[in-house]
């Protein structure tokens, strides 16, 4: 089986995980910039992080014949500090030309605060100004519904944004339709406790359709499973879906979305 892992924070995973991904058939990973589990104190911390995901991680992935792509931003958990967020946004254009950068992400909201929304809008403007695709993080648990609505409004308000070049990740049963009906792509995240199980993701494919969706693990420093996408594929097979359908969901759909950036090329 071949597949793409379209949302993984490989900086916090071991090299053994790259090996496991390769054995499972992973051809490429997408690494959105995120919160590292603690707040960084300066723009320099982000400068080093952006170097890591544009220079170092692609080499680590290549050792296992996996292509590595990334997305740049200051994530919403650190966006409450507007001064720091603006400093980080100002260094992002230096990294956009890097070969493996597909866009701006994972931007979005966390607690749905005024400052988070302000910095989200500034990131959307940055993407519009530099003609970049966008990968969006939606808030957790009780904050997800409200945050998804605020995010969709903010994106709809920027006329230069093409919804087909934006993926809104971590959708659940109560938010998927808000995302898809507005023309955005929807990501379903297979993550313990705070997101969806394999079976719920497959249920959502049955309910909302198999177009403009992808599955991802969002594996990071937390309790998470870098192999959750191939495990969901096995669950699809057990439910009776054939290889062609599974290939569409775990390979062709992410390839279709990511190919909208001219930089995405599978080797």
């Amino acid at each position: 089986m071949r597949y793409i892992e379209p949302h993984a924070h490989m900086v916090s995973r071991t090299t053994s995980d790259y090996e496991a991904l390769a054995y499972a058939g992973c051809k490429a990973v997408n690494e959105p910039a995120f919160w590292a589990g603690f707040d960084r104190s300066s723009g320099d911390g982000f400068y080093d992080y952006f170097r890591q995901i544009t220079e170092y991680e692609p080499k680590r992935a290549a050792k296992f014949c996996i292509d590595h792509y990334c997305w740049l931003c200051i994530n919403p958990k650190e966006a409450e500090d507007v001064g720091l967020a603006r400093e980080v946004i100002s260094i992002i254009p230096n990294f956009i030309p890097a070969d493996n950068v597909l866009g701006i992400g994972e931007i979005g909201l966390n607690k749905n605060s005024k400052n988070e929304l302000l910095i989200l809008e500034e990131h959307i403007q940055l993407a519009a100004d530099h003609d970049q695709m966008i990968l969006v993080h939606t808030p957790h648990l009780e904050d997800k519904l409200k945050g998804t609505k605020l995010i969709v409004d903010a994106l709809n308000n920027q006329s230069k944004i093409d919804p087909s070049k934006v993926i809104i990740d971590h959708v659940e049963e109560h938010t998927a339709n808000i995302v898809l009906s507005n023309g955005y792509w929807a990501g379903m995240t297979l993550y313990p406790e705070s997101k969806v199980t394999h079976n719920r993701a497959i249920d959502m494919l049955e309910m909302f359709g198999d177009e403009n969706v992808w599955l991802n693990s969002a594996c990071d420093w937390g309790i998470s499973d870098p192999l959750s996408v191939p495990k969901a594929a096995l669950e699809m097979r057990r439910r009776g879906y054939d290889d062609e359908y599974i290939d569409k969901i775990v390979y062709k759909n992410p390839v279709q979305f990511m190919s909208q950036s001219g930089k995405f090329k599978l080797h």
Binding site: K111, N112, S113
Partner: peptide
């Protein structure tokens, strides 16, 4: 939107 994110 809430005024300020006091927790993450």
């Amino acid at each position: 939107p809430i005024d300020k994110a006091d927790i993450q």
